[in-house]
Nucleic acid binder design. Structure first.
Length: 255
DNA sequence: CGTTTTTGACCCGCGC
DNA sequence: GCGCGGGTCAAAAACG
């Protein structure tokens, strides 16, 4: 009996070790990705600043620039301002339907294949009230086809329907139900996905290869290497602290 | 038979 | 002015 328990503990420990390793790998990947994104964003900002400076220095009649142009430039400076609400929802990768259950009743009025994404974009209008101006666009994420990106446009002219609907992050028990209700991404997942989306939007897909080239060139960058080394060290230290804390908890619970 | 979805056509803004 | 791409319309088909 005691031997069987030992075996069970050993198996569980092995599983735990595997999960820890996987978690480490994913954490590392996320860290690297966010460092790359930060680098890319700051690089992009530098490029924009240089472009802006170039415009000012080359244009001696800056005062004569019409208001429209200045507003356009202002929009370029703050691309994230007044952006419609974007929601990222995880679904089954093989689920081809672009339906997100958010409590509202939507009526599909169009579908388009866009240039930057192989999967089609679906257009929905709120059908809960005849005069409701709320709309949403749903499209699969370019990088992860199991993620749906819903862009909400306009406010509902009626109250929040279906009180029973709760966008809970807890997965329902039973696999047959789990694919019916999509799970919302955690904040961290949503942020990293959003950063990638933003970078992709800013650079454009046709320049995707150039981004890859730039990302690979980052490895040669001493600043990037230092930041990466720091991130790796921090990850390992964090992991070690957590493990010590877990071990301590286990010891305490055993006593 | 009413409602919803599909899908090609059309419109409009933007860049060249 | 033209072409391109995103958004919307509307007729036909599908569905309950």
């Amino acid at each position: 009996m005691a031997i069987r328990m030992d075996e069970k503990v050993e198996t569980l420990e092995l599983e735990l070790q595997q999960v820890r390793e996987e978690n480490n790998t994913l954490r590392f990947m996320l860290e690297v990705m966010s460092i790359k994104c930060t680098k890319l964003e700051s690089h992009l900002q530098d490029i924009k600043k240089e472009e802006h400076r170039g415009i000012i220095s080359s244009n001696h009649q800056i005062e004569s620039i019409p208001n429209i142009d200045s507003s356009k430039r202002a929009r370029l400076e703050f691309p994230t301002a007044q952006k419609p609400l974007q929601v990222f929802v995880r679904t089954q990768p093989n689920d081809e339907s672009l339906i997100i259950k958010d409590g509202y009743q939507w009526r599909k009025y169009g579908q388009k294949v866009t240039k930057d994404n192989a999967s089609p974009r679906a257009y929905f209008r709120c059908s809960m009230a005849p005069s409701c101006p709320a709309k949403k666009k749903v499209q699969k994420c370019i990088h992860d086809r199991s993620i749906l990106v819903a862009t909400y446009d306009g406010e509902h002219s009626h109250g929040v329907p279906n009180e029973s609907f709760k966008p809970s992050s807890s997965t329902p028990k039973g696999s047959s139900i789990s694919n019916k209700l999509p799970t919302r991404l955690s904040d961290k997942e949503a942020i990293s996905t959003r950063i990638c989306e933003n970078v992709m939007q800013q650079f454009g897909v046709e320049r995707h290869i150039k981004i890859e080239e730039y990302a690979s060139s980052l490895i040669k960058d001493p600043d990037f290497t230092a930041a990466l080394a720091e991130a790796v060290a921090r990850t390992i230290t964090d992991q070690e602290h957590k493990r010590q804390g877990l071990d301590l908890n286990l010891n305490l619970s055993e006593e």
